[in-house]
Amino acid sequence: MSGSKKSPLKVAKPSSAESWTNPFDSDDEGKDSKKYSSSRKTSSERALATLEVNTNPFDDDIDANKKSSSTSYAFQSANRNRYKNDFRDSGGLENQSVQELESYAVYKAEETTNSVNNCLKIAENIREDATKTLVTLEQQGEQITRSHHVAADIDHDLSRGEKLLGSLGGLFSKTWKPKKTRAITGPVIVGDDPVRRKDNHLEQRDKLGLTSAPKGQSKLRTPPPEPTNALEKVEVEKKKQDDALSDLSDLLGELKDMAVDMGSEIERHNKALNHLYDDVDELNFRVKGANQRGRRLLGK
């Protein structure tokens, strides 16, 4: 279901983000910026480039030209490629007009928002993979327990076989008793088994105000009013960044919990496997003894 299938909702990437050039740049400057953009293409540039193409199946009834105000503002800026190298080609930050610097601030704010969103995306992907890993660990734990149950069943069957082997061997032969070094214990529940908690304490935690539910309520965000000037646009971007960082913080907290749970579960598996190993070793010893007895009986 959630396998490796590509989502049809993903926006297609155009072949090149560098194809856009500034008509006001001189030839050599153009070459220069090309050099920069190929080596230092940021995520925000890629994101901006993707806005042109749309393959979203949910998109057919929305005006293709309708873009968010911040991105349309970004596209209006003819000097975008000068921002990429912090005005190095045009006399540095000190020699820029206020309007130029405002545009630059908006550009940087957008770039930061994109970076934070990319971090969030990566964290979401990690979370998804971690969830799958935890399910696999649970399955593995079940399999170890089942294998141990089978070992215990083999023990019962072997005991019966040993009895039969003991009763064979004629009237005057010495009675045979199987050697046992230790009893087969079967699967052992290690510790208090924190994984299988009988009670779900989420409600109590909620009443105590320990869960993220109340915080989550505030996350039903209302869209901010349309920004008019550069300062407002930067503020809007800051708000977006705050929201994304808040989400990222929650996600990282959850990832930490997942890692802890993975660790403790693997520890449980190791202990369970140690017990299983001991039991299988004992069974092996007894099977060898039974084989020896069988060979002796056949040799008579």
Binding site: K5, K10, F58, D59, I62
Partner: peptide
């Protein structure tokens, strides 16, 4: 409101890409 529906789905997908099963069902809803 179809436009709102589209925006909501698009925003979610931009962060967590929807798999084909979810896409199929959401298209039915749309």
């Amino acid at each position: 409101d179809v436009a709102k529906f589209t925006d909501v789905v698009k925003e979610f997908d931009s962060m967590t890409p929807l798999d084909s099963w979810k896409t199929t069902l959401l298209l039915r809803v749309k």
